[in-house]
């Protein structure tokens, strides 16, 4: 197992370095003044320009600058946002947990529901039920989650007034204890739902395909020959074996959830990493843009690594090989 992890690390680290190098190379390609490109639309005085040039080795050749950037990165220095007037790492660390909260809440609904729908659709002896579920999930999957968010806001917040339209918490709140919790649930409900619907249909589709694949396996025939009931075949043989591939899918989906968060957080003004990224892009706060992308790359590669290890632990065939 240790060797397996080591091998995956050997694969991941060069990938990460290459991504960061590529991003910095793109920063080089921005037309115009490099100092201006770094700080974005922030006004630049001559003294400031000199400081920046020196700090980021702008006069040095690209490899030197790459090296200095890596040195800073390893020390936890992601740069400074002149628009937000804060170190970028600081910004990331305050925003990331909110995105994680939203994503995890969404997945907490999407995964069980998706697995259940896929399981029902894949195992039902009734072809029409399956057709109905398959077509419905295909259509629902076509709804962009940010538009679904808008529609949910329109219906449930604007018309019915059940949920707040935006934000993560009320401006002023005196709620305590459980009420405090309920208040937050109110705010997270719609964005999490919009996220969960999209991801849930995806899981349902993948689960269905996986279930159908499992059902064609010989050991299902063996289970039937043993005289097991339909429900215990599903519980003991179909569910677990079909869910295994979903571990990988869920992990990758979690890693790339930032992509969806960019749009969804904008709809609901949810102050997470996605919204930060969009704001930074709009304000041309390039230090933040670069840092968020690099942070995302690190997070995704790390999550993929964890997922691969987890999968290897769950599947005895891979476990013994690793």
């Amino acid at each position: 197992m240790a060797r397996f992890i080591l091998m995956r690390l050997m694969h991941s680290i060069p990938l990460l370095i290459a991504i960061i190098a590529l991003i910095l190379l793109m920063l080089q390609l921005i037309p115009g003044d490099p100092v201006q490109a770094m700080v974005g639309d922030y006004p630049v005085s001559p003294a400031f320009r000199e400081a920046i040039t020196k700090q980021y080795h702008l006069d040095d050749p690209f490899p030197t600058r790459l090296l200095s950037y890596f040195t800073n990165l390893v020390q936890g220095d992601f740069g400074y946002s002149y628009q937000f007037q804060r170190p970028v790492l600081d910004l990331i660390l305050t925003h990331a947990p909110r995105t994680i909260l939203l994503t995890v809440t969404g997945f907490a609904f999407a995964i069980p529901v998706g697995i259940l729908i896929g399981l029902i659709s894949g195992t039902t002896p009734n072809r029409r039920t399956d057709h109905l579920v398959t077509t419905a999930s295909l259509l629902v999957y076509a709804i962009p989650s940010f538009w679904l968010g808008q529609i949910l806001v329109l219906g449930l917040s604007v018309k019915l007034g059940w949920f707040p339209t935006q934000g993560m918490q009320p401006m002023i709140s005196r709620a305590q204890g459980f009420d405090w919790f309920l208040e937050r649930v109110h705010y997270i409900a719609l964005p999490a739902l919009a996220f969960a619907v999209h991801e849930g249909t995806r899981f349902a589709r993948i689960m269905r395909a996986s279930v159908i694949d499992t059902l064609s396996q010989g050991y299902i025939m063996t289970a039937r020959a043993k005289g097991l009931s339909r429900s215990s075949i599903i519980r003991k043989h179909v569910l677990r074996n079909s869910s295994l591939p979903l571990v990988t899918i869920a992990g990758y989906a979690f890693g790339t959830a930032l992509g969806g968060a960019v749009l969804l957080e904008t709809v609901f003004a949810w102050p997470g990493l996605g919204l930060l990224f969009v704001q930074a892009v709009r304000m041309r706060d390039n230090m933040t843009v670069v840092a968020v992308v690099i942070f995302a790359a690190i997070a995704i590669i790390l999550i993929n690594l964890i997922v691969d290890v987890l999968y290897a632990l769950l599947d005895p065939r891979i476990r013994s090989r690793a």
């Binding site: 991504i19 930032l258 992509g259 969806g260 960019v262 990224f277 969009v278 892009v281 992308v293 995302a296």
Partner: peptide, 10 residues
Amino acid sequence: TLPVIILVLF
């Protein structure tokens, strides 16, 4: 590695 929309936004 990176989500498509992040790359495009970038």
